[in-house]
Design a protein around this nucleic acid. Structure first.
Length: 130
RNA sequence: CGAGUCGGCCGGGCGACCGCGUCGGGGUUUUUCGAAGCCCCGCCGAGGAAGGUCCGGGCUCCACAGGGCAAGGUGGUCGGUAACGCCGACCCGGGGUGACCCGCGGGACAGUGCCACAGAAAACAGACCGCCUCCCCGAUCUUGGGGAGGUAAGGGUGAAACGGUGGUGUAAGAGACCACCAGCGCCCACGGUGACGUGGGCGGCUCGGUAAACCCCACCUGGAGCAAGGUCAAGAAGGGUUCCUCCUCGGAGGAUCCCGCGCGCGGCGUUCGAGGGUGACCCGCCCGAGUCGCGCGGGUAGACCGCUUGAGACCGUCGGCAACGACGGUCCUAGAUGGAUGGUCGCCUCUUUGCGCAAGCAAAGGACAGAACCCGGCCUACAGGCCGACUCGUCCG
């Protein structure tokens, strides 16, 4: 799972990531990324899974899957990042591979906009599909 | 073998690797010597309903003169229990050939209300068609119409029509009277802890249902809830207790402990008592100097304790029809707080689909659902499966 250092725990961090950050949407999830965190600290990742996604069992499963997927993608986030991943109702029925692919696309777009040096421009067709 | 009734249990299994959470051990760094950080190893890590939050408790804080009047709940009896609206046994009523099942099971002579449709009439008596007597009119060989009265046996409606059957009786009839039966009330005897049952006697001859309609009766019930409650930190402008010093006797300074979001405006107040508590209200009682409203500004939901050893689980013996209890032994079994159970696989198992004569092969899928202070219940959801007891029917012996 996710190392405990990288877990987002406070409401204000969620708020600043969602309000002050950039956004990338996919059918199953929406990712918010901001750089307003502690510049020396590790990146913080939080998840928001509303009741629209499903019951308690479904929400827990979605959250755990996302947390597991983020574990291998933490190194791609710069220091001081605040990332919040919101799950859409479609995430309840998605397979793990689909979640992973969409999470990759969303992260690439967010990091690409912040650091235009590497893999900056995804084709516009991806946005249209979203 | 078929059909069925009741009860209990499981709710995918084994293994590998990488992660996460609590706890324990080891190493290392820092240290205010309490501990904290990092790394490594090991154990354990969701449910029968963890769910709905419908009852009952434990636990915590507040309250704990009394009276009146409400409110809510429960409702056969006896027992079980910490307690219950739960459980067991029994009683009564109903259903089933039966095993068994169902019951929201106190009171309808305290009072009020309601009873659709049909029907003449639906609760207190009344009479549509009938039946019978008398009178009048018409007709004259067997009956028609009208009026006054008697009656409830027969018809028809309905879930239900003021007891049933047979007789006496009568103009026709009727508990008007009689016998038996049903039912109601009272009394006695016997059995039972009791609900109640069995038997006998007497009475007037007969009385609808609905209380999950109001209501009446009996019994029970303090308020809030782990965001309870406690410790620390943070916030700092203020108020108060007691003591000391100074003084222009108004206060000022210091120490101490306690309380407390701040400011502005306004209302009501300090013994002629604001406001609060006492379960809602009233009386009464208690505490009492602040309190209430509006506006502006600000601070919060950080850390730790509570937090998992408990009406505990399992096994055995004994008591009890049973629910359950007593005794003995063994065991410690989740404790998160943006909330730990996920990912990738292998083998087996079950279901479905496809291929195949078959053995089998391949693919997809695994019910309902996630602990949050803890127990005892109830209710609701649930793929599939296992075990036991019993009943009825058929066949064989």
């Amino acid at each position: 799972m996710l190392p405990s250092d990288s877990r987002m725990r406070h409401g204000e961090e969620f708020a600043s990531a969602i309000r002050g950050g950039k956004r990338a949407g996919r059918p199953t999830l929406v990712a918010h990324l901001s750089n307003l965190g502690d510049p020396q600290g590790p990146p913080l990742v939080g998840f928001v899974v509303s009741k629209a996604v499903g019951g308690a069992v479904v929400r827990n499963r979605v959250k755990r899957r996302l947390r597991h997927l983020m574990r291998h993608r933490l190194h791609s986030l710069p220091r001081g990042s605040l990332l919040v991943v919101r799950a859409n109702p479609q995430a309840a029925s998605a397979r793990s591979e689909q979640l992973a692919a969409e999470l990759d696309v969303a992260l690439d777009r967010l990091i690409g906009r912040r650091a235009p040096g590497r893999r900056s421009d995804r084709p516009a067709a991806t946005d249209g599909q979203a």
